[in-house]
Design a protein around this nucleic acid. Sequence first.
DNA 1: ATGAAAGCGCTAACAC
DNA 2: GTGTTAGCGCTTTCAT
Lengths: 342, 342
Amino acid sequence: MTGINEVAVLAGVSTATVSRALSGNGHVSLATQSRVKAAALELGYVVSSNASGLATGRTKNVGVVIPFLTRWYYSSVIEGAEQALLSHGYDLTLYNLSGGGDERRSVFEHFLLRKRVDAVIAISLELTASELASLFEMNKPIVGIGGPLPGVRTLSIDDVKVARLATEHLLSLGHTSIAHIGGDTSVELDFHLPTNRRVGYEAALEAVGIPIDPELFAAADFSVPGGYRAAKQLLGNPRKRPTAVFAASDEMAIGTILAARDLGLAVPGDVSVMGIDDHELAGFFGLSTVAQFPAAQGRMAVELLMEELHPGRHVAAANTPLHFELIVRSSTARPRYSASER
Amino acid sequence: MTGINEVAVLAGVSTATVSRALSGNGHVSLATQSRVKAAALELGYVVSSNASGLATGRTKNVGVVIPFLTRWYYSSVIEGAEQALLSHGYDLTLYNLSGGGDERRSVFEHFLLRKRVDAVIAISLELTASELASLFEMNKPIVGIGGPLPGVRTLSIDDVKVARLATEHLLSLGHTSIAHIGGDTSVELDFHLPTNRRVGYEAALEAVGIPIDPELFAAADFSVPGGYRAAKQLLGNPRKRPTAVFAASDEMAIGTILAARDLGLAVPGDVSVMGIDDHELAGFFGLSTVAQFPAAQGRMAVELLMEELHPGRHVAAANTPLHFELIVRSSTARPRYSASER
DNA sequence: ATGAAAGCGCTAACAC
DNA sequence: GTGTTAGCGCTTTCAT
């Protein structure tokens, strides 16, 4: 392994100068600078992050903690974060909590604390008090995405508003019998999210004087099959089949579309379907949805961290509220005349 | 940050003893050992991976390089690898190449080489000669998953056999007109994979004397929409509609099922559909498939690395060929009598 | 079984 | 603008 010494020798300078020339800290004449860089290149020299980290106290590495990896939303956030980190010269180390209790404990007790990371990004996590305490003990910047963590700067779309917007789209088309597929609280993610979306849905209905009907609610697990099952229940109800279904995620909405098809119901002819996310398959299924932008969220989280880590160096858009956007495709339409009596 | 010194003081021993007691290297009396551990626990001490890494030359960290993150297969492999690494006390740092050329270069030129990792796992990657050279220069264990990398120990299912098995399942049901949806080579993953699967498909047909018909092949990008489009082409052919479609991935097979439905064709009544992967949605769609087990593949890659990193310590199943398994669900059946003349 | 001390490879004062 | 040098926090000989 070629070290800083060999570069120094080859360039005919001291190691300190090599360090300065390569890191950009301190003043080095342009001439030496280029000599050093050439030498480094020639030798294929790369700093040892361990040594550098030990000396500076900074690791150029951030930890990302997620509850799942195999869901579109999470992997998209990570993709965005990873790109942004890379561009700032940082690495991303991944802590996936989906393994369950033990894994979760060991992540919090050992891994995050190893001084391996300069900061952490926590995605859609509901943390226990002691987990939060662990994090705070580290005294490192933390930013959350999606779940309001007490005491942590968190990036969140306004789930209430998003759900309300989705519901209002349906209302504006003339639907009055709108079902909602929301989360059950069993899923190990921030449990405010399903609640908030349900609140937004109900608020939209109440605003136009439509009473909330508990029979028009079904819980599912944010997956396609879960949405399918829930939608079958809702759409199979012989007494009051809704003319529209608003699912709290696109995956559940896609399940709903498939359920409708299997029941012989046309979308949007017999039933309109609305989701949230703008999942990669939303376009394919013609799903109307409220888009959120997970990759952008990941990037933004990184910008926030960079600002804390390198004060003054960045002029990132600090407190931009997270963007969302109604996207109308072909799964929503006016309710068919007298559709509910057919 | 509490350091090893404070632990030493509290336990009334030297830092050397603390190090030994905590790492398990060297001999420490049981009494001291427990005193040290208690002290460490009380102070919430965790080793600095930087300092430890600098002293030992080992980072307890492995780099995982992937071409995509938002596909089921890749995130599943990572999930498996992450769990296994965690259980060995290792961290996982993620290098996602999906960003494109520049990102890719910087990963290879700067990041992997920072001595930040003890080993690397490369998933389904087709590497350039210089990228491979970078990796070898590091002189660290590498294991590949899925793409045969010259000179690298690689874990691979036998794609030819897998595809052959899938095709034989269709043949054994009595199908003789079997289309194949394979990869186009544009996708930035190991391009042997689509080729090998196609080879297996053709071998199965030739073995029973069925000529290969280029009109029964369509290329797609391993996605659901891609499979859908390809299937529409194949199944829409007025002169020779196949009675079965074998797609090189479950996502494309799911696209095929949806395409068939949209054409009014029953699955498996009018057309049987077969995939590869056992994607999380395969069960939901009743898709017959040849399962591979990405999480297990990730775990196995880790075991291999551990063996190299800690020789003699592990008795992992070294050269187990990767497991695959035919799973018959409801998307395949005998061809309907005279289906092709309808 | 334990302690003293010499680094691991780099950075950051501090001199010049 | 550049060199000298003292650590960063741990591990690991080498003694004892």
